Deep mutational scan, measured.
Amino acid sequence: MTFKLIINGKTLKGETTTEAVDAATAEKVFKQYFNDNGIDGEWTYDDATKTFTITE
C-alpha cells in the first residue's frame, strides 16, 4: 500500500510517499524521516486516505 506524508513545517514543506505493508510500518518510516530532517510537530493520520500530516 502507498502512504502519503504531507509536511507543513516552518522550514520544510512538501509531500512524499512510501510503500508499506500497513500504517504502523509507514509511521516508523515517516518518523525516521522527521528525525533525519529535524522536523518536530503535531501529526495526524487519516486512514481513509492513508495520509499522515505533520505540522510544526
Results as ranks from 00 to 15, higher is better:
residue 38 G to F: 14
residue 4 K to R: 12
residue 15 E to A: 06
residue 22 D to K: 01
residue 10 K to I: 15
residue 50 K to M: 11
residue 24 A to I: 09
residue 47 D to L: 04
residue 49 T to Y: 03
residue 32 Q to K: 13
residue 3 F to I: 02
residue 15 E to V: 05
residue 23 A to R: 09
residue 38 G to P: 13
residue 13 K to T: 08
residue 25 T to D: 10
residue 7 I to R: 02
residue 13 K to I: 11
residue 40 D to G: 08
residue 33 Y to N: 04
residue 26 A to E: 01
residue 27 E to V: 05
residue 7 I to Q: 02
residue 28 K to T: 08
residue 40 D to I: 13
residue 21 V to T: 10
residue 48 A to S: 11
residue 6 I to N: 03
residue 15 E to N: 04
residue 6 I to M: 04
residue 18 T to Y: 11
residue 12 L to G: 12
residue 9 G to C: 15
residue 34 F to M: 15
residue 20 A to K: 02
residue 14 G to E: 13
residue 6 I to E: 03
residue 22 D to V: 01
residue 24 A to Y: 09
residue 9 G to N: 07
residue 11 T to W: 14
residue 26 A to D: 00
residue 30 F to Y: 02
residue 19 E to G: 03
residue 32 Q to H: 09
residue 40 D to Y: 13
residue 45 Y to M: 00
residue 43 W to M: 13
residue 11 T to H: 13
residue 36 D to T: 09
residue 44 T to R: 07
residue 39 I to Q: 04
residue 26 A to W: 01
residue 10 K to W: 13
residue 13 K to E: 06
residue 53 T to Q: 04
residue 4 K to P: 01
residue 42 E to M: 11
residue 21 V to F: 11
residue 22 D to T: 03
residue 18 T to E: 04
residue 33 Y to C: 09
residue 5 L to E: 01
residue 13 K to H: 12
residue 52 F to V: 01
residue 7 I to L: 10
residue 42 E to P: 06
residue 47 D to I: 06
residue 30 F to W: 05
residue 2 T to W: 09
residue 11 T to N: 14
residue 10 K to V: 15
residue 26 A to P: 00
residue 32 Q to R: 09
residue 1 M to P: 08
residue 56 E to R: 03
residue 27 E to S: 05
residue 25 T to Y: 06
residue 49 T to D: 03
residue 48 A to N: 08
residue 28 K to L: 12
residue 32 Q to P: 01
residue 2 T to H: 06
residue 28 K to I: 11
residue 21 V to P: 14
residue 7 I to T: 03
residue 35 N to I: 15
residue 22 D to S: 04
residue 43 W to P: 02
residue 8 N to S: 07
residue 11 T to F: 10
residue 17 T to H: 11
residue 8 N to T: 07
residue 42 E to Y: 12
residue 36 D to P: 07
residue 55 T to F: 09
residue 23 A to E: 06
residue 27 E to D: 03
residue 56 E to N: 04
residue 30 F to A: 03
residue 4 K to G: 03
residue 5 L to N: 01
residue 46 D to Y: 02
residue 10 K to C: 13
residue 23 A to N: 03
residue 14 G to Q: 14
residue 56 E to L: 13
residue 13 K to C: 14
residue 51 T to M: 02
residue 49 T to R: 05
residue 4 K to F: 10
residue 53 T to M: 06
residue 35 N to T: 14
residue 28 K to M: 11
residue 23 A to W: 11
residue 12 L to E: 09
residue 30 F to N: 00
residue 11 T to V: 12
